[in-house]
Amino acid sequence: MHFDLFAAGALAPGVASITDLLAMRRAGGSAEAANLELPSPQALPPNERRRASQVVRLTLACAEQALQASPFKADQLRMVFASDEGTGEVCQQMLQSLATTREVSPLVFHNSVHNAPSGYFSIGHQNRQSALSVSLGRESFASGLLCAVSEAQSSGQPVLFLSYDVPMPQPMRSLLRVEQPSATAWIVAAAGTVREHDPLASFELSLHAPHEAEPAAAAWLPATWADNPSAQGFVALAMLADGPAECDFPLGAQRLRLARVDGVARC
């Protein structure tokens, strides 16, 4: 499947924008990254901002970066959000309540669904399009990208794809090791469906038979979050700089190949 990328966002400790990510890629690494302070989501109504969970702050802030460079309005975009566990401290709070008082807060419960970030995004931007929230564990980036691109392909409409992980507090962290947040945002459309705007880059996405070698870890990403499943999105977007012409990501018994096909570095 051939698709165009029109705008992108990247957010993690040490990466405040796609420009930061590409600079880090070109430099081949970064200094020790400071903790990331996640902003209150300005897209939400004031009463929801203060109560917004870490994952809602992360995803809406990352999406905002892409929206600022997007040729499409926020309410025109179909939504595909992908994450491994995807709720972080909300999941931990609910399990703690269930194991002790059994009194779950109504807010914690409705924030505990995997599709809370896409739900809040749609409310904040009054977006009434289709919203998907998906997971395939440590392969959530590849599975989500496949869903986003096939939706763009079959609908002929632009799709906002978010791939993210949010820190899990202890004791759950010892089972699910995510210490720092990381997220990328992609605004994509099927090749040829948008003629009035120039894309940042064009890609070919395809499925292939498995091969023996594990994908090489990205040594240039900060070690505190380089192993997050969503860090694969940073590796993929680094192709906008001087990265490789193609990347392979495991997807079940196959691998998903993302190849840059326009060959022109515009960033």
Partner: peptide
């Protein structure tokens, strides 16, 4: 499910409540 059924195609879990 894939292990039980012997499938090897692409997979996704959709979780929208």
């Amino acid at each position: 499910s894939a292990e039980v059924l012997g499938t090897a195609g692409p997979m996704v879990t959709i979780s929208t409540a």
